[in-house]
């Protein structure tokens, strides 16, 4: 399988099964519409006749030979070696956990999938230290021989329950030596309750921190008001800058959501960079289509154009000003994730679970409150392995739409929660998310192509 596209003045060719990426001329681009394996020794006469109206016959023959050579080298129309590895996609130890440490929030973000902290459960509550400790014990037990474990403090707003966050970290650390484990903690916060003590603790203990902000003040404040209705932008930007300035080289992200209200979201990304943040993620809203801010298929042309604009702006920024990293344009063409991750993605429901304040276990934070996917309860010592096995076997070869998609080894079958919420089945990818994902991937590959060209030119000039 191949995928080819035109973007940024380039003709780009991806060999899906090998991951090979090529920049091709117009002739190759057109010729690939007319030939495919099994290749004849020479370019078929009807193809020569057809394309000779635009290109020279000698060039067509030469180009055909190049295509056949790459095919013989196994980097064009290459075989699919990955399906055999899908048999390895079996139930794994649990190695990551999302702790809903606070099922409550001091903000009222309009698009919040957690329904401003309540998770649709109609009540607000904080996780007790006792439940948090049981969750850590569960993770240690279910992680079997895995040494490296991740715990994400999530909400609602986790800083509403900061004392339990601190004591949970302390408790987990106390188990590391005894059980030969290494905990890595992350936290996602809206920033309102950040102060010097919390910043110091987060920067000491949290391997990564996600700081929620949507971008420009008017964009952020429209969707992210406080419980009292006023905007949050002015209350958080200085605190975020303070946290990041003290963080050294540890990971962080400022993370925003774009909606139908800011389809010009490239301006929000660049605004966040202008505020001094280098690590930025701005992602499409997940919302019921009946809401006025939900994205729809009619928005796709504008969204696509905006990602192209963003790629241009990032290129220009890097050239003129310095570093910027946009999460969804990150692409490692040299190595990237291992095969199982490429096939199965985040590991939700299998390697990764979420725990509610009441000790209920779900496949991930977005499934919390969906009774059908409640996997068990810490107090009752229950854990549904049938659900775990269902998620373990949910990969790009068991999702029929994914199996034939060119982007499958990069998107890994999409988000199981989005699939369920939008399509009622974790195996049915949400088409709108797919289209956006594919566009981002094309932009990311284009940026790599430009990087390659630039390096190539520099090498030639230096030699």
């Amino acid at each position: 399988m191949i995928h080819k596209f035109k973007l940024g003045g380039y003709n780009i060719l991806l060999d899906v099964n090998s991951g090979g990426v090529h920049i091709v001329d117009n002739l190759t681009y057109d010729l690939l519409d007319n030939v495919q394996p099994p290749f004849e020794e020479k370019c078929p006469q009807d193809v020569l006749t057809k394309l000779s109206k635009v290109y020279k016959v000698e060039d067509i023959k030469e180009c055909y030979d190049e295509i056949v050579l790459l095919y013989e080298q196994g980097v064009l129309y290459s075989s699919d070696d990955y399906e055999q590895y899908s048999l390895k996609a079996i139930s794994s130890p649990v190695k990551a956990m999302c702790l809903l440490i606070a099922q409550d929030c001091n903000m009222r973000c309009k698009y919040c999938f957690a329904e401003t902290g309540e998770y649709g459960l109609g009540k607000r509550m904080l996780m007790s230290l006792e439940t948090a400790k049981k969750a850590i014990d569960f993770l240690v037990e279910k992680s079997a021989n895995r040494k490296n474990l991740e715990v994400d403090f999530f909400g609602g707003e986790p800083l509403l329950n900061f004392d339990v966050v601190k004591k949970t970290v302390e408790y987990a650390r106390s188990l590391e030596k005894k059980f030969d484990k290494n905990f890595r903690f992350t936290i996602t916060t809206n920033g309102l309750l950040l102060d010097d003590d919390k910043i110091d603790f987060i920067n000491k203990e949290m391997y990564n921190v996600v700081l929620s902000i949507d971008g420009r003040k008017e964009v952020n404040d429209r969707m992210r008001p406080l419980a009292g209705g006023q905007g949050s932008y002015d209350k958080i930007t200085k605190k975020y800058a303070d946290l990041v300035s003290k963080r050294g080289d540890k990971d962080y992200y400022v993370r925003g959501t774009y909606t139908k209200y800011n389809l010009d979201f490239s301006n929000d990304v660049m605004h966040l960079r202008d505020l001094g943040f280098e690590q930025i993620s701005v992602e499409p809203v997940v919302a019921d289509k009946s809401t006025p801010y939900a994205l729809s298929a009619t928005d796709l042309p504008q969204i696509f154009e905006e990602y192209e604009k963003l790629a241009d702006k990032i290129l220009k920024y890097k050239k003129e000003k310095g570093f910027i990293n946009f999460f969804h344009f990150m692409l490692d063409l040299d190595q990237g994730p291992c095969a199982i991750k490429r096939l199965r993605g985040c590991g939700s429901g299998n390697e990764y679970v979420a725990v509610s304040p009441e000790g209920d276990i779900y496949p991930c934070h977005q499934f919390v409150g969906i009774e059908e996917y409640k996997m068990g309860n810490l107090d009752e010592h229950t854990f549904n392995y049938d659900i775990k096995n269902e998620f373990a076997a949910a990969h790009v070869y068991t999702k029929s739409d994914c199996k034939k998609c060119w982007a499958k080894f990069y998107c890994s079958g999409g988000c199981n929660a989005n699939n369920y919420i939008y399509c009622g089945d974790i195996h049915k990818p949400h088409k709108l998310s797919c289209e956006i994902q594919k566009k981002r991937l094309e932009c990311a590959i284009m940026l790599k192509a430009i990087e390659f060209e630039s390096k190539h030119q520099n090498d030639e000039e230096n030699s």
Binding site: G19, H22, I23, C63, E66
Partner: peptide, 11 residues
């Protein structure tokens, strides 16, 4: 290669 420039073989 005159027509195809390879940037980078999918671990």
């Amino acid at each position: 290669m005159k027509h195809i420039k390879t940037i980078n073989a999918l671990t």
